[in-house]
């Protein structure tokens, strides 16, 4: 199943005004892996994600999704297999109703109407939002919008899910539901986040970005145990790995 592979080789990118954002990044993510991309604000996380579906073109270096090196001629195929969930669901939900929005991708793929209907229902059922089907997106709560945004990528049956801060702006319960939902997915997952506890729950592997470079890439637990590394990268141990402020005991992990 080589088409679930994400390979980035010596990726460099500077913004048109000359600001360097990525300064030579390489990694290989294999089928079914769940990887957290963490780092301080402005470390280049979003810039990196925007390369994975060809929205940005590298200044130098290469991105390969499955068998396809990303280029102008393959970008359509790549976008079909990489589903992207945006940080702000309002950017992603632009159609008049939830059903229209979830159907947007499949209709663009040229699928027959019954198949599209089927996919819409299936995607909405997966995220537990079937009851919102005929509502306009601007009337949904933050958690509902997030679920629908995820459904609107799922309906295209992507192989790889790329998510930018999926747990941002969610209340604790909605966040927990999201984590449980994501843990049921078998897709290759790449999650950019500041929510290190979620990274701990969902991702076996973590990549730390700092100043446009990868400063660490390895098993999540190992990385989060390294206090010095975290400090250098402007991060902190996940709360669940810190001591308990009430009873004073250290967490065991």
């Amino acid at each position: 199943m080589s088409h679930h592979i994400v390979e980035v080789k010596d990726l460099k990118y500077s913004y048109p005004d000359g600001t360097p954002a990525l300064d030579g990044i390489s990694f290989l993510i294999t089928h079914g892996e769940s990887v957290a991309v963490v780092g301080s604000n402005g470390a280049g996380k979003s810039t990196l994600l925007h390369h994975l579906n060809g929205y940005l073109t590298p200044t130098s270096g290469m991105v390969r999704i499955g068998d396809l090196p990303l280029s102008k001629s393959t970008v359509q195929a790549v976008r079909r297999s990489v589903g992207m969930v945006f940080q702000d669901p309002d950017d992603q939900l632009f159609m008049p109703t939830v059903a229209d929005d979830v159907a947007f991708g499949p209709l663009n793929l040229g699928l027959p109407l019954e198949e599209v209907n089927d996919r819409v229902d299936r995607a909405l059922t997966t995220v537990g939002a079937l009851h919102l089907k005929n509502r306009p997106p601007y009337k949904l709560s933050g958690g509902e919008k997030r679920s629908v945004a995820i459904a609107s990528t799922l309906s295209m049956s992507p192989d790889i899910l790329v998510m930018d801060e999926p747990s941002a702006n969610l209340d604790p319960q909605a966040r927990r539901r999201l984590i449980e939902l994501l843990s049921t997915f078998t897709h290759t997952k790449i999650i950019a986040t500041h929510d290190l506890d979620m990274a701990l729950d969902l991702c076996d592997r973590t990549i730390i970005l700092h100043g446009g470079l990868i400063t660490a890439d390895g098993p999540t637990l190992d990385i989060f145990r390294d206090s010095a590394l975290l400090r250098r990268s402007h991060l902190e141990k996940p709360l669940s790995m810190q001591g308990c402020p009430a009873c004073g005991s250290m967490a065991v992990k």
């Binding site: 579906n53 929205y55 947007f104």
Partner: peptide, 23 residues
């Protein structure tokens, strides 16, 4: 900026200049 992000979101889902609806 938002316009740019929305356009990106549309491209991600195979937008080709035409909006299809189920209705």
């Amino acid at each position: 900026n938002r316009g740019r992000r929305i356009y990106l979101a549309m491209l991600c889902r195979g937008f080709d200049g035409e909006i299809h609806t189920m209705r």
